[in-house]
């Protein structure tokens, strides 16, 4: 379950900043210079990572500064783990 809003990554060149927010559905907001070139790739990677974490619904905002696919995947995973973390409230 997505418990809270969490981010991973940075706005450095060749990185991306991924922000995960609780949502009722899957939403992807993909921004950056490559948004027209890589929207489908990015949606594919995002859905795949979410499935691996058994998360169906989440809102992802991704600011892509020219990240490679492996970087994108790693940032989404880390953001998800942070958003799902049990803080022991």
């Amino acid at each position: 379950m997505i418990a809270r809003t969490a981010s991973a990554g940075s706005l450095e060149s060749s990185d991306c900043l991924v922000t995960v927010t609780p949502s009722e559905s899957f939403e992807l907001d993909y921004a950056g210079a490559n948004k027209k070139l890589f929207l489908k790739r990015t949606e594919g990677v995002a859905r795949q990572v979410l499935a691996e974490y058994s998360v169906e619904n989440a809102r992802l905002h991704i600011q892509d500064q020219g990240a490679l696919e492996a970087t994108l995947r790693a940032r989404i995973e880390t953001a998800l783990e942070r958003a799902m973390e049990n803080l022991g409230s």
């Binding site: 490559n34 027209k36 070139l37 890589f38 929207l39 489908k40 790739r41 990015t42 990677v45 490679l68 696919e69 492996a70």
Partner: peptide
């Protein structure tokens, strides 16, 4: 393209 992904045709 294995690293970057395949861009969509414009």
């Amino acid at each position: 393209e294995k690293l970057t992904g395949v861009p969509e045709q414009q």
